[in-house]
Design a protein around this nucleic acid. Sequence first.
RNA 1: GACCUCGUAGCUCAGCUGGUAGAGCAUCUGACUUUUAAUCAGGGGGUCGCGGGUUCAAAUCCCGCCGAGGUCACCA
Length: 501
Amino acid sequence: MDLVFSSREETSRRLARLDEITAKFGNPFFITKFEKTHSAENIKKEFSALNPGETSGKSVSVAGRIMSIRNNGMFIDILDDSGRLQIFHNIKTLDVARADLLKLLDLGDIIGVSGLVRRTPRGEITVDAESLTILSKAVEPPPAKFHGLKDIEFRFRHREQDLAVTEKTRNTLRKRYQMISYIRRYLEDSGFLEVETPMMHTIAGGTIAKPFLTHHEALDMTLYMRIAPELFLKRLAIGGISEKIFEINRCFRNEGLSPKHNPEFTSIEIYQCYVDFTSMIELTEQIVSHVAMKLNGTMKLPFGDKEIDFTPPWPRKGMTELIREVTKLDLDKFPNADDALREAKKIGVLLEDGLCWGQIVEAVFGKKVEHTLIQPTHVIDLPKEISPLAKAWPDRPNVAQRFETYINGWELANAFSELNDPREQKARFLEQAEQKRGPDDPPHPIDADFIRALAFGMPPMGGLGIGIDRLAMLMTDSPTIRDVIAFPTMRPIVGKEAAED
RNA sequence: GACCUCGUAGCUCAGCUGGUAGAGCAUCUGACUUUUAAUCAGGGGGUCGCGGGUUCAAAUCCCGCCGAGGUCACCA
């Protein structure tokens, strides 16, 4: 049995047609180029003035995938990256060779066509083919002719087929990549320098998350796929490479999958010297509202049955203040962890013993408040205990100069006035290492290199991280993160042979 | 990792309390020829996710496994 090609009759028939095409017209896979003069969209624009039944005198060359064949090949719809276009083969003017080739075409094949543009009596802009070239043979047929694919698993495992037949997939993924491009251009125009930092770390730092492990053979050492780029970005800023830097790249976290979590995801982190976290609030609003306008032309976007209004400014509310509004519980009145734990239990948030006050606040917020924050909201005044890389307020030593932006109940952004006191940073790391975490989690390692870098003198600065995938979900009305990731993480299908081993 | 739901033709889906495996599209053959998901007639295509069990009889009931979706936990 062939492990690659399907054993379907359809496939052997297509392979036979490929052999016949090769014998009569040459091997299509030897072709290396085809000169396109127009895209489907260009033609529709350029010849929009043609009246029904009118033919232009202009010849064009187009290419794309065959999506539909009607009337025995008289009408063929091709799809290129701009859209669909109808090709016409007049049975009366066909030469024998072209008629022969036409019979050997299948849905999914890639063809190139040259001919005059006209508008048919029915009103469709059409290319009257004068020459036809098959540029690639689809040996396996496309899965669906009109309505796109519905099987979620099939779509993610075979994204190329999903893209070819599902318009919504094409639009969503294009918007995602355009969005990243708009963000990049916006920041570059604002004087930011895009930088790169390591994807493989010897210490998984910058946040708390379970890392993926890998191994370097030559150095015989464990490396961690990065969980955040933060510490390296700060080191670039310390060196003074630029006072405004950003990185758009992948992070990896060895944790559960969900509609808003994929093991690898894309974040942008931005650092700007000589500003505080309030400037990062403004930057967050600027970036998000900019891409909303660029991509959709409006600040009010539908998401499922909701409408989200991205028009800035967005309200800023304290974390304990929000908990009080939703649950009536004022955790600021219970600054002792044991008391806070007891009060949390009273409103139905059951937590294990040993958590610090900040972790309790965070947990209550997560359980009771998070899902209520549908419209964009900046949550400020986060506990210092859960913000080891943020400056605290001089007059409120337990409160970090930090915010998290919530939209549609999700954390979208996280930012602070970056801590730049090396002694304080060391103390915070030591404190963090003491904090209770999951039963199987190893103690959090301390990145001494980073503290030494701070000791070299880091200017005061604001830092910001935004979840790119989640922002793409919001911009494209996508209910799951896998819709906006071209190839989301999937379990492989174990073949029969492997199962028998 | 736990729980719930799902897995039937290439695709989208029917298939009731167990009784010979179905439709539309795709595909093939023929007809027709300025169509728009072309139309008309006919044909082929199935280990009903995989394995076991109950039964005279299993797509259907039971158990295990694989895969997926959802919820929870962890987290962004």
